[in-house]
Amino acid sequence: MDKIQTLKTSARSLGLIHTRDALDEVIHTAETEQHSYLDFLTYVFDGEILYRQNKARDKRIKEAGFPYPKYLKDFDLTFCKVISKKQFKQLTELTWIDGLYNLILSGPPGVGKTHLAIGLGYQACEDGYKVSYTTMQSLIKVLRTEEIDRHAGVKLRRIRSSNLLIIDEVGYLPISATEGNLFFQLISELQERTSIVITTNKGFEEWTEFLGDAALATAILDRLSYQCDKIPMNGKSYRLENRKSFLNETGKDK
């Protein structure tokens, strides 16, 4: 037992956290399965690598700032019929991130825009990309307070270093001219450096309405749409079509 404790201490000194924590199991497995020295070392190293990969993935997901988990496997293509299986597969392969393409998911509330955006973000985190999620209102707030709020500065530094930025709920509320200019500056800065996914309830022709400036709207859309796929997700609300009733489920309204 003293030797095992010494090994655990050595593993900790070397930063082999998984090996330290799993050492008893590792030794038991090696003895039970009569591993050769080579097999034993392979087992130890593979376990450590997998542990570090999973830890890094979990850190990427946490730091992305998703409001809740959404997964591509749960996205209902039978409900969202505007996206074909082939298009969906192309989206999930994420090659558009490497090509610095943007996605604009437009349509009314409840059609799956946010689900698809977050699902793509989760998949990107799984695949090793650095992702940032924000709503438009939160983004505007951190842009306005970057110079005076440390947390805003940290958030924007992460956004600027991300492979993928998801901006949710663009156009739901109007923004001031100053805020619009800050948004334009960020989009310009990220152009050809970061892929951007935007969810919006506005068509391109309506961006002037919430930005309050036709020239600014044109300039922003010009940069976003340079390399971009626009996916109109029109249709009925998934939430309304699948709404649940507590009374119905418990039988109390019968």
Rank of each mutant, 00 (worst) to 15 (best):
S132F: 03
D168L: 02
K89V: 11
A117L: 05
D149V: 08
E48W: 00
I49F: 03
P174F: 09
V142M: 11
E147N: 11
M1C: 10
K59G: 00
G15V: 06
E209T: 14
I166R: 02
S176A: 10
E169R: 06
K70Q: 12
V154C: 01
L240V: 00
T9A: 15
L221D: 10
I61D: 02
F184K: 10
S162D: 06
V154N: 09
Q34T: 12
K8V: 08
D127G: 09
D222E: 14
T199Y: 07
N248F: 07
L72D: 03
S176C: 04
D222K: 08
D21V: 05
E31R: 12
N54P: 00
T208C: 08
I140T: 08
N201T: 05
G235P: 08
K81E: 12
K62M: 08
N201W: 05
G99T: 13
N242V: 05
Y68I: 13
I118N: 00
L7A: 15
R150Y: 10
E179D: 15
F210R: 02
I27K: 05
K62R: 12
A214M: 10
L16Y: 08
T95A: 06
I4C: 03
Y122K: 04
I104S: 04
L50K: 15
E33F: 06
K252N: 09
Y68K: 14
A177I: 13
K230Y: 04
L100R: 15
E146N: 07
S161Q: 14
L38H: 10
K73D: 11
H28A: 15
G180P: 13
D74I: 03
I175W: 07
K86L: 12
Q185P: 07
D76F: 05
Y43S: 07
L94P: 00
F75H: 09
G47Q: 02
I148L: 05
D127N: 14
A215C: 04
T250R: 13
K70A: 13
E126C: 05
I166F: 05
Q227P: 02
S195Q: 04
Y37L: 15
Q5K: 13
T6D: 13
N242Q: 08
K230E: 14
F75T: 10
Q87D: 15
E48Q: 13
Q34M: 13
F210I: 04
T135L: 00
Q5G: 10
G180K: 11
F79C: 07
F75L: 03
L190A: 08
P174C: 06
P232N: 13
E169F: 03
P67I: 04
I159V: 14
I97A: 00
T78N: 15
D98M: 02
